[in-house]
Amino acid sequence: MLEKILKEFDLDYLACQDKTAYNDLRVKYLGKSGKVTDALKEIKNVPNENKKAYGESVNNLKVLIEKRLGELSEKLEAMEFEKLMADMERVDLTVPNAESVGSLHPITITQNKIVEIFKSMGFAVEDGNEVETDYNNFEAVNIPKNHPARDMQDTFYLENGQVLKTHTSASQNRIMRKYGAPLKAIFPGRCFRNEELDASHENTFFQLEGMMIDKDISISNLIYFMKTMLSQVFGKEVNVRLRPGFFPFVEPGFELDCSCPYCGGEGCSVCKKSGWIELCPCGMIHPRVLEMGGIDPEEYQGFAFGLGLSRLAMMNFEINDIRVLNGGKLKQLKQIKTK
């Protein structure tokens, strides 16, 4: 009889293809009135001397069926998972996102990066006006009336004698008076020159200027600082070299060249094959300028430097026409998102 049960089970086993059939199968053999359970109940009709052997046989059969059912369950689950995988929808992550995001201006991104560097070095970040007095823009940075440097700067003059600031240096005096010495500050700002526009000239552009004033600040410190700062800006070690440069508010004044961060000094289109890019006018703050800022030049020295933010942004994003920056063409500006 037990053999008959096993034979029948084998047939049912082969016929079982899904979970429902499996559950039925289990009930049919191992349920309360399943065939194996029934067979076990039959023990009461078995002669005593055979009871033990019969009991063992039924139990063996039960173990065997349970084992087979276990295998069957695993097999069915595997089949089900396969089917689930086969039917699951496929998502193409290379499809572009539907939602467009906004964008920050190239100047903002560049400026923020530089400002963060300076903040990490303990600089205060200041902000000047765009309309400045003649005094702040010229006199206080050692450019008196009739100074030829006033010619070099094509100044927008307003009706009341004020000017649109021609350089961020216009903020120097106010900042020196605000903080006194010692002082570490940078001041990004928008500047204006009354000139015609072309691919490399704008009448409205951004600079970032900085000052560091303390006892015993030296040219040696300036070189060290500029090298450290520019290496941070470009994210790699750069070399700097100084050349004489004439700016009325510094003495000595320098043109600072930076080894080209794009080609490592080998020569490329950015550095016009020279290996150096002229980046950063700087110098030791002129004693007269310190004096006008209320700082004693006998006790304190300092250096100042300027960075062309518009130029850095153009280098950073490979923009080859400065007019893009103020042009307000979103097709261009939206390319760089918020980073």
Partner: peptide, 25 residues
């Protein structure tokens, strides 16, 4: 205001899909 200015710009661009521009004075 220095930090605030950047944070405001970032929020408008990143959260409200606006584009920053520069225009003449």
């Amino acid at each position: 205001l220095v930090d605030l200015e950047y944070d405001v710009k970032y929020t408008l661009a990143d959260r409200y899909n606006l584009s920053e521009v520069h225009t003449y004075i």
